[in-house]
Structure formats: structure tokens, C-alpha cells
Amino acid sequence: MKVKIKSWTAVGTWEWVSNDDTCGICRMSFEACCPDCRTPGDDCPLVWGECTHCFHIHCIVKWLQSSQQQQLCPMCRQEWKFKE
């Protein structure tokens, strides 16, 4: 028997590799985006601190901008440094 493929559609799935399920700031799932965004993915990426804690970039930036004194991780209160 010969099969002729006329067309095919590829489907891919992806997920963030994070050590938690939800963002500690907005409490939305990492598979979803922060409350200000509409589509998860590159438009609403996750970022990691050197302390290994992970947040939506929009959430952690808002937190760092709102804290008057030092820039601390909202989870562990260590100094926040973006992990390269």
C-alpha cells in the first residue's frame, strides 16, 4: 500500500522550566501571563533572580520600582539580582 501525504500540520507544546507553579507576586500560573498581558510566552517572559526565585518580568519590575529602600526578592528578602 502506498500512502500519499497531501498536507500535515505540526503542533508543539512548551512550558516554562521554573521551580514553582505560580508567580509569587500576581499569583497567576506561570503557564499563563501576568494580569496586564494577554498572551503567555515571549511577550510576558519569566525572569530568575540569583536567589533562584522566579517571577513574571512585569511583576518583579513593578515590585522593584515600588520598593523605596533596597531591592529585595519578595520571597526571600535577599538582595535582588537578575540572573544572567
Binding site: 500576581c26 499569583r27 496586564d36 511583576c59
Partner: peptide, 12 residues
């Protein structure tokens, strides 16, 4: 703000 209300709903 969107984020506040949404978060309180979840926390609740």
C-alpha cells in the same frame, strides 16, 4: 487596578 482585584480573589 486589575492585578489587585485578581490577586485578592485568588487569595480569598
Amino acid at each position: 487596578a486589575n492585578i489587585a482585584a485578581q490577586r485578592i480573589q485568588r487569595e480569598f
